[in-house]
Amino acid sequence: MSESENASGKMQVSDDVTIELRGVHKWYGQFHVLKDINLNVHRGERIVICGPSGSGKSTMIRCINRLEEHQQGRIIVDGTELTDDVKHIDQVRREVGMVFQHFNLFPHLTVLENCCLAPIWVRKMPRREAEAAAMKYLEKVKIPEQAKKYPGQLSGGQQQRVAIARSLCMNPNIMLFDEPTSALDPEMIKEVLDTMIELAESGMTMLCVTHEMGFAKTVANRVIFMDGGEIIEENEPNEFFNNPRSDRTKLFLSQILQH
């Protein structure tokens, strides 16, 4: 498509589909939160999902690593379909990393231990190897000097970068971001976004729920707008921002860009 317009040529999108959502429905009790979601994500694609709160965007990406269960339709991640089968769920979670709004670092473990926990217990890595890998990723997010500290001693921005490093330690093929900057003070948002942009440049498949439209413009090759539990509009960023097709997208953009 037109990704040469919005980022460097490094960002290649291949043709093979890595995440496939087909006719996905989800209910919370009587409440219909996801309505007939259809979405194909290609390897190396960077998708930004936006929409008003309660529109189901977080729920949708949380279905992709089965933190939420869907009740109808199919979700296939890297060729594995998400069902009740525990093996499938394990398989998918190993390949999909996730970063949360509230970081969710383990407060009783040091930064390094946070990063090593999953490699050691899930990937069965020797500790020394896991620590070496963790240090590599901590350097990547530019906080290797904090490795021995506890999460409580770090700033919000630093904590979120640790959370990103922690996910990367599992060598995921896909990264999900659930409003990664919403809980941060303004001066810390940039350091996290910079880390995410770097990650995007390395070719990671990314799905980001975020309201950072600047980020969407620089790195996304597709923007998805959700409202009322369904995908209203999807387009490449330039078109999406300059020429929204639906009224609701327009209204949402005008509200969000005014600030």
């Binding site: 009790g29 009740q71 009224d247």
Partner: peptide, 18 residues
């Protein structure tokens, strides 16, 4: 400019409610 017709709220599958 297209007008989007909202997807209707459906009742959840019978096995999940009631």
């Amino acid at each position: 400019m297209t007008e989007h017709t909202p997807h209707p709220d459906l009742a959840p599958p019978a096995s999940a409610v009631g």
